[in-house]
Nucleic acid binder design. Structure first.
Lengths: 107, 107
DNA sequence: CCATGCCTTGTCGATTTAGCCAAATAGGCA
DNA sequence: TGCCTATTTGGCTAAATCGACAAGGCATGG
């Protein structure tokens, strides 16, 4: 693998890594349902420290998946690349396929 | 977020995490082009220790993304859920969108 | 101006991850 | 049997990640 290839896969991995956490998946899911949410709302829903949520959001933003907008003292986040939602169908089918496989091993 | 929700997002995150590494993305890409590859071939292409490649493959297998088949003394891996390939279009568009944004900041 | 609420950032400890080397396992072949 | 190759696994270190708490910045409302 040459340097250019390497860079390509690293760039891709960075985006995927940004999604690779339950809390961040929840955030993406939530923003697909509700257009925009402030940090405090998400914090409330998730149930971890606000600083932790803030960092998750910063990470998603840095990857280009969400964007933020400050209004007054609140910061609202919304989905910037909604194509990531398409991942979920495939993910679910992987999970279902794994489950079916597990099942089969028992018989 | 209740326990069931939590579990759902964790299961999803596990799959995504399995893809969140440049080497593993390379492997998936390669298996989309060539149907099957043994560990030694992939090791050759990637240029890290075979034990490292073996672990990456085990991780992908554990997530249900690839499957393996032992033939003689070699182990061949192939893609099990090719739907993950669909991720790449979206990923590329995120990258392109980020780049366009960067560009705009310079003007 | 001060208090309060919203948010981000610095720091720390605990956990996970990635890579290497060495050792163990397993198949193929002389 | 004994060597060689292919692969996995154990052990180790360095680096990254996550979560909590504390402190600081900024806006709002008395």
């Amino acid at each position: 693998m040459n340097a250019k290839q390497q860079a390509k896969y690293e760039a891709r991995a960075k985006i995927i890594k940004a999604l690779a956490h339950p809390t961040r998946l929840f955030i993406v899911d939530e923003l697909s349902k509700t257009e925009q949410r402030c940090v405090c709302e998400l914090t409330e829903m998730i149930g971890v420290d606000m600083s932790t949520v803030s960092r998750h959001l910063a990470l998603l933003k840095n990857a280009g998946i969400v964007e933020d907008e400050k209004r007054g003292s609140m910061v609202y986040y919304r989905l910037r690349m909604s194509c990531v939602l398409k991942f979920f169908d495939c993910i679910e089918s992987v999970i279902a396929c794994n489950a079916a496989n597990q099942q089969q091993l028992l018989t």
